[in-house]
Write a protein that binds this DNA or RNA. Structure first.
Length: 683
RNA sequence: GGGGCCGUAGCUCAAUCGGUUAGAGCAGCAAACUCAUAAUUUGUUGGUUGUAGGUUCGAGUCCUACCGGCCCUACCA
């Protein structure tokens, strides 16, 4: 087999948050792939770094009253600690805030300039005069220019859905200082990506660099029309690198972040006396990026465009994975399923998560579900019951002795498993770890059956059969060793324990050892290799994840510990409303007397409300999928009775049913206490 | 409204170019065993492949419509 040279990256974690179980899908998927390549004897390096620039970091540092450098150093240390805790082994872990990155950004920028891809345009942006900073969209709130709803976010209206730029808001307010921002026009630098359209089209769709779903997505959303100019500068102050030939402007974080891959490689090269060009400008090197589907287009359009223009290697593959759900739902802080890496490590074994993710990961970008019952079942059954059990039930009969000098007749079992190695390897190579794990478990089943059939526990009692006993153990332990080698990318700890038990290391290039049985060597005393998952520990982890949340709600010194999320999402309106304003809104108790689905509407239910007597209102409510019509029929609700009728696609809505919640499935219809009668006014 | 992905056993997933009787694991049920961390082994139940059509000698796979889920995008609230 020819030795490949492979450079692998995982997306750079942002310095604004801690690593959680969702992030780990990616870093583990990548770590397994890298360990596999190394085990196969290829030259492979795993490169990563912290992504440190941008407005969010600047603001947070300011709020915490310290420098950005201090903040990002602390976060980087935490990230590295978490990764190490999960046996994620980077060859280099750098930072986008490094001299190497600054230099490379300059170099790449220069190439882009020379290629004539840069153009300048004025952009209107809001500026906070108190903080002295330009405001990203999410730091501005104001009144929607279209529907005039107050206190709306800076990019689109939560009421009418209208998209706008923050400069269009009526009465905008900076969420940083509460000041009224000024509109300032600034010169921004853009990359004209359209000039690379043909190249990107060929790269993204032509060759096998992307999963087919991703190629379709790019084709349907971006490549079918002219590519928009990419705004890659931000006026200062901005935590990042100043653009050398455009003083006062800084590279947008998404410009310098991917360059961090190269910069981190450069650090590694300097430490190991290697040439950067051998890794980034050589036809002999394959570059593989692992990313989540949320950052697809940065890595499949902008990034290849930058690389191409600056003469670097293009990615051989961009491997894109889906999101993590827990128990079939988005990770939730309130339910304790938003689990930090560090919290997991306090309660559970990292090897367990490595195996569980491996057993679920395929090559496509489907979301991956962490089901905690299944988690326990898989670990207990696959790892403890099947894999480790092979060693556990055979090693004790030969410990402190030797394996047989000649490998005994095993009916072809070892050879079968050796042959299966190529299948396993193919699955690893294709990122289809689930298939690889299935294949290995099948080998475990065969090995267990072998032990079962030979009944070594009976031979043990017969002094005349000790040689036979040793032969059986020699076979069983060799079958186990094969399994440990095949699982080594996923379970480096188990490989190490196996190596210690059998006095033969399993390291880089040692995949081949699965092809030849070990004979004559001594066997050490068997020690427990892996524990089962304890239900209690899982529960403790979930509980602690909830507690952390309550802690963060601090200030919540009442007994209920309600979290601050709702207010953070929709801060209190600052403008006061007079009593006169209040009484303008005529809210009434109403009974739902008809309720049904609206044909063709995705979110609407049609309700007929009775205000008592024969006064009724037909209203549409955007609560389909949350409430069934029969849930509401006959119920009392609160409605706004004097809301101006609104013509909608499906008819006229003559009012509004009051409900709360951020939307989606989180919508709660307000209901009056018992005793209220339809028609009563809400005061 | 436009687009994409998906729907296979109770659960998680396979099924090569369209090719024989749709397969595994887990769970369930029954039995064997006692070396092993209550592990293991054997046997076994379980399916109108979301629905309805179509193409084909042959459809889980290809086409059309519909139902349901997720995502992107636009619009309307």
């Amino acid at each position: 087999m020819t030795q490949r040279r492979i450079l692998v990256t995982a997306a750079l974690p942002y310095a604004n948050g801690h690593v959680h179980l969702g992030h780990l899908v990616e870093y583990l998927q990548t770590d397994i792939w890298v360990r596999f390549q190394k085990l196969r004897g290829h030259r492979c390096i795993y490169i990563c770094a912290d992504d440190t620039h941008g407005t969010a970091i600047m603001i947070r540092a300011r709020q915490e009253g310290r420098s950005e450098d201090e903040l990002i150093a602390e976060m980087q240390a935490a990230h590295e600690r978490d990764f190490a805790g999960f046996d994620i082994e980077f060859d280099n872990y750098g930072s986008t805030n490094s001299p190497e990155n600054r230099e490379l950004c300059g170099e790449i920028w220069e190439s882009i300039r020379q290629a004539g891809l840069v153009k300048e345009k004025d952009v209107e942006q809001l500026f906070d005069p108190v903080e002295g900073t330009f405001l990203a969209d999410r730091f501005v709130r104001g009144t929607c220019p279209k529907c005039e709803s107050t206190d709306q976010p800076g990019d689109n209206c939560s009421k009418c859905g209208h998209h706008y730029s923050p400069a269009e808001l009526i009465d905008p307010i900076s969420t940083l200082s509460g000041a009224t921002p000024e509109v300032r026009s600034e010169n921004h630098l853009f990359i004209e990506l359209e000039q690379l359209h043909e190249f990107l089209n060929d790269w993204a769709i032509g060759d096998d660099h992307l999963q087919t779903e991703v190629a379709n997505y790019l084709k349907g959303h971006f490549l079918h029309e002219p590519l928009r100019d990419w705004d890659i500068s931000r006026p200062g102050p901005y935590f990042g690198f100043e653009i050398p030939d455009s003083p006062g402007n800084y590279w947008y974080v998404w410009f310098d972040a991917p360059i961090g891959y190269i910069a981190s490689t450069k650090q590694w090269c300097e430490k190991h006396n290697e040439k950067l060009d051998d890794w980034w400008r050589s036809p002999d090197t394959e570059i593989h990026h692992f990313i989540g589907k949320d950052i697809t287009y940065f890595h499949t359009l902008f990034w290849p465009g930058m690389l191409k223009t600056a003469g670097f290697n293009l990615p051989e593959k961009v491997h894109i994975h889906g999101f993590l759900t827990v128990g079939g739902e988005k990770m939730s802080k309130s339910q304790g399923t938003f689990v930090m890496a560090s919290t997991y490590l306090k309660h559970l074994d990292p090897a367990h998560l490595r195996y569980y993710y491996a057993s679920k990961l395929g090559s496509r970008l489907d979301d991956l579900d962490l089901n905690l019952d299944e988690f326990k079942a898989k670990i207990d059954s696959d790892l403890v019951g099947k894999a480790v059990n092979i060693a556990s039930r055979s090693a004790k009969f030969v410990q402190d002795g030797n394996l047989s000098d000649v490998y005994p007749d095993d009916g072809g079992l070892f050879q079968q498993a050796a042959d299966a190695g190529e299948t396993v390897a193919k699955h690893y190579e294709n990122c289809d770890y689930a298939a690889a794990m299935r294949e290995v478990m099948m080998l475990c089943d065969r090995a267990n059956k072998y032990v079962e059939d030979r009944e070594p526990w009976k031979l043990r009692k017969d002094p005349a059969k000790q040689d036979e006993l040793r032969d059986i153990c020699t076979v069983a332990l060799n079958l186990f060793r094969q399994v440990a080698i095949y699982l080594a990318p996923v379970l480096p700890g188990l490989a190490k324990q196996t190596a210690e038990l059998l006095n033969d290391p399993i390291g880089p290039g040692d995949w081949e050892k699965s092809q030849t049985p070990l004979v004559g060597t001594s066997v050490n005393k068997f020690q427990h290799m892996m524990k089962r998952v304890e239900e209690k520990q899982v529960q403790a982890m979930i509980e602690e994840s909830k507690e952390t949340q309550a802690d963060e709600a601090a200030g919540g010194d009442n007994q209920y510990n309600d979290g601050p999320e709702a207010l953070e999402k929709e801060p209190l309106t600052e403008e006061e409303c007079t009593y006169d304003d209040f009484v303008k809104v005529d809210m009434r108790v109403a009974r739902v007397i008809e309720a049904g689905h609206v044909e063709g509407a995705d979110k609407l239910l049609g309700l007929k409300l009775s205000l008592g007597g024969d006064v009724t209102r037909n209203v549409f409510a955007g609560i389909k999928g949350v409430y069934e019509p029969e849930d509401l029929l006959g119920q009392l609700v609160i409605c706004c009775a004097n809301l101006a009728p609104r013509k909608m696609r499906f008819g006229v809505s003559e009012g509004m049913v009051l409900a709360s919640g951020p939307g989606g499935k989180d919508i709660y219809v307000l209901r009056p206490d018992s005793g209220a009668q339809p028609g009563m006014r809400v005061h």
